[in-house]
Computed example of a mutant assay.
Amino acid sequence: MKIDLQLLVFAKTMRTNATDAESLMWQLLRAKRFMNLKFRRQHVMAPYIVDFYCHEIGLVIELDGSQHGTVDAIEYDAERTKFLEALGLKVVRYWNHEVLSQADFVLENLWEICLKLKDDK
C-alpha cells in the first residue's frame, strides 16, 4: 500500500505546529510513558491523519478544538470515525480544553480504555 507523499509531508508539518493540547498530550504519551505503550503522533491512515495512534492495542486518540463543534465537522468526524472503526480501531475523542484543564480526568479515562483494549488482545 503506497502512502500519499503529500499526506506524509502534511503530517510532519502538523507535528511541528501542534496545538497546546496536542503538545501536552504528546508529553504524557511519548517514549512509552503511558502504560508502556508506544504512541505515534500525526500518524497517516490514508486518507486521514490521526492525532495519536497506538498500533499495539489499535487505539486512535483525537483531540478536538471548538471548530469540531460545527454541524459539518460533526458529520465529517463521524464519517472519519466510521472509517477507522471499519479498520478494527477504537477511536476516542477529547476536547482540547479537557486535556489542558483536566488532564488527570483524561488520563484516568484513557487508562481504563487502554486496559480494556489490552485485555481484549
Rank of each mutant, 00 (worst) to 15 (best):
F105E: 11
V106H: 07
R93F: 09
H97Y: 14
V91I: 12
K82T: 10
K82F: 07
H97L: 04
L107F: 15
V106C: 09
A103G: 03
A73L: 05
V106E: 01
E75H: 07
L89M: 09
D104C: 07
L87H: 11
E108Q: 13
V92H: 03
R93T: 08
V92N: 03
L84R: 00
V92M: 01
N96W: 00
R80T: 04
W111I: 07
I74R: 08
D72F: 06
E85P: 01
V92F: 08
R80G: 03
A78W: 01
L87I: 00
I74G: 01
L100T: 10
E85Q: 13
L115G: 01
E85I: 05
W111Y: 12
L115D: 14
H97C: 06
F83N: 00
K116A: 15
A78V: 03
A73M: 02
D77T: 10
L87E: 15
T81K: 06
I74P: 03
A73N: 05
I113F: 14
F83I: 02
A103V: 15
W95K: 13
L87N: 05
K116R: 14
T81L: 00
G88T: 04
C114S: 11
I74V: 13
D77C: 02
N109C: 09
S101W: 14
E79A: 10
L84V: 11
K82M: 07
Q102S: 13
S101G: 13
Q102R: 15
K82L: 13
R80V: 00
E98W: 09
K82E: 12
A103K: 14
K116M: 15
T81S: 08
A73K: 06
D104H: 07
A78P: 03
A86N: 15
D104K: 13
E108H: 10
A86T: 12
K90M: 11
E85W: 06
W95A: 14
K116V: 10
H97K: 11
L84E: 08
L110C: 11
K82P: 00
